[in-house]
Design a protein around this nucleic acid. Structure first.
Length: 305
RNA sequence: GGCGACGUAGCCAAGUGGUAAGGCAGAGGUCUGCAAAACCUUCACCAUCGGUUCAAAUCCGAUCGUCGCCU
């Protein structure tokens, strides 16, 4: 019998955390955050991490498990989340996954292929070459060893070209072969999945409000503190929306007003990308939120009964 | 009332006779170990009417509108 998990997905600022909290309280559950930013310690305001009070109400897993300069990947998430689910179930708690990082959710619920993991040194070397020689050349090189992957990649898409090259150089097997063998066909969990659906205008309004709140809560001070304590501005989480703009502002690249404008705009773009991702997830049930949240509540109760 | 300048997409804006650059916003999409990242696609008959011309956003006239100056 597969383990049962409830999944609350949705774009940023849609109200996932709040709903997940309520569901966890109703169902005797605990929350597992599927979020690539809140795993980092010391990023609280800009990552919209659940507050201390919220964490006191319900236990949250996978928060604050890395330092800002430590790597964390979809694979790490999959392992950590699986462990957290086990932990919940062992103690008679219902696992409620809440988050907006589509790839994390997918790799947990449908598995990940067996391709080798990241090789930072090789990546750095390839990135250096890409900068010098250009994407076309690397893509041509990839076409020699993995034509299927090369065909679907744009020469500007360096990150993917580099990953495909990395996989081949580390394993001697083309990435496309790993994909063909895997096809996201694992189904390790019995998952009831919802995606919160808000009218676009309403979502954008909520994003604007949330950014204003972050600033009022001291986002700039949070970033200053991180930088003062020696966290490098180029580490991954500080390249995230909300952090990178504050850093640029602190460097004098633009004023506060422009910074706020950019954070709001970039967050809207991000939400749009999340929606595109979630639209292609066939298992997700879209629910008008908050109007139909009762539908989720009753379906979840039945699911776990 | 007179004189002058201007009127190109939601916004900024290039183009001064040969069939509408670019940026931003918006929309759509890709995504299998960096994913709040990275990448791609898409969006105009040029204020209106008339004229000149093989050909007009580009020249001429009128109208409307905006801005500035003058009375």
């Amino acid at each position: 019998m597969k383990q049962k998990v409830l999944v609350i997905a949705g774009p940023t600022a849609s109200g996932k955390s709040e709903l997940a909290l309520r569901l966890a309280e109703q169902l005797n559950g605990e929350i597992i955050c599927a979020d690539s930013l809140t795993v980092y310690r010391r990023l609280a305001i800009g990552s919209a991490k659940p507050t201390t009070e919220q964490q006191q109400r319900i236990r949250h897993h996978l928060l604050d498990i890395r330092e800002p300069d430590q790597p964390f990947t979809a694979s790490d998430f999959r392992l950590a989340a699986a462990e957290a689910i086990n932990d919940c179930i062992r103690r008679g708690k219902r696992p409620v996954l809440a988050g907006g990082t589509g790839l994390y959710l997918r790799s947990l619920l449908r598995g990940l292929n067996d391709a080798p993991g990241e090789d930072p040194a090789l990546r750095a070397k390839l990135a250096e070459r890409a900068k010098r020689e250009g994407g076309e050349l690397l893509l041509a090189e990839l076409a020699q060893v993995d034509p299927d992957t090369a065909r679907r990649l744009h020469p500007n898409n360096l990150i993917r070209i580099i990953r495909a090259l990395e996989v081949f150089q580390c394993s001697g097997i083309p990435l496309s072969q790993f994909h063909a063998e895997h096809r996201f066909s694992d189904t390790p969990y019995d998952a009831l999945q919802f995606c919160l659906d808000l009218p676009r205008k309403e979502l954008y309004r909520r994003i604007d409000d949330r950014v204003d709140t972050m600033l009022a809560n001291g986002l700039v001070a949070e970033v200053e503190l991180l930088l003062q304590s020696g966290v490098t501005p180029v580490c991954k989480p500080l390249q995230a929306i909300g952090y990178k703009e504050v850093i640029s502002h602190l460097r004098g690249e633009f004023d506060q007003e422009e910074m706020i404008r950019l954070i709001k705009r970039n967050t809207r773009h991000f939400a749009k990308r999340q929606l595109t991702w979630f639209r292609s997830e066939s298992e997700l049930q879209w629910v008008a939120y908050p109007q139909n949240s009762a539908t989720i509540e009753s379906a979840a109760a039945t699911f776990f009964a």
